[in-house]
């Protein structure tokens, strides 16, 4: 089971080497906003809903674009805008994420799944795009 360690508290995770080897636990935030803070956990609990676990996207009657090896991520402003305001099939997340959370997840996606855009975006970039 992928989320086999979800009952373990974060402190246990941090101090147990076996637990650290496991994938991060699925989070259920206590309120309307997301409480995940790192790019990895934000991706796994939010983006993954549509873009899937390896950023491969999905195809049905319409599609969720793959984020893996995606050249549209080259300019950091584009994913910032999409995350904040949504577009077409994508939901807007601006009200549910802080500037820092947007930074974390955008930088994560731009440096994972075969993407290697190392010019990190900043909280100021996000603020300006709100």
């Amino acid at each position: 089971m992928r989320f086999g360690v979800f009952l373990m508290s974060l402190s246990v995770l941090a101090t147990t080497s076996i637990a650290l080897a496991e994938p991060p636990a699925a989070t259920l935030s206590p309120g309307f906003k997301f409480t995940e803070q790192t790019g990895e956990t934000l991706y796994a609990n939010v983006c993954q809903a549509c873009h899937m676990s390896k950023g491969e996207g999905a195809v049905g009657a319409g599609r969720y674009p793959a984020l893996a090896n995606n050249e549209s991520l080259k300019a950091g402003g584009y994913p910032i805008y999409a995350v904040l305001h949504g577009q077409k099939g994508m939901s807007p997340f601006g009200r549910m994420l802080s500037d820092d959370q947007v930074v974390a997840v955008v930088n994560y996606v731009r440096t994972h799944f075969g993407n290697n855009y190392t010019d990190a975006v900043t909280a100021q970039d996000v603020k300006d795009a709100r």
């Binding site: 992928r2 699925a26 259920l28 906003k33 997301f34 796994a44 939010v46 809903a49 549910m96």
Partner: peptide, 20 residues
């Protein structure tokens, strides 16, 4: 209906959703 949990549940596998 909307809110963080809706996306978080969606991001899980169907089995994990049911378990939780």
């Amino acid at each position: 209906w909307d809110g963080a949990n809706s996306y978080e549940f969606t991001a899980m596998s169907p089995e994990e959703r049911i378990k939780r």
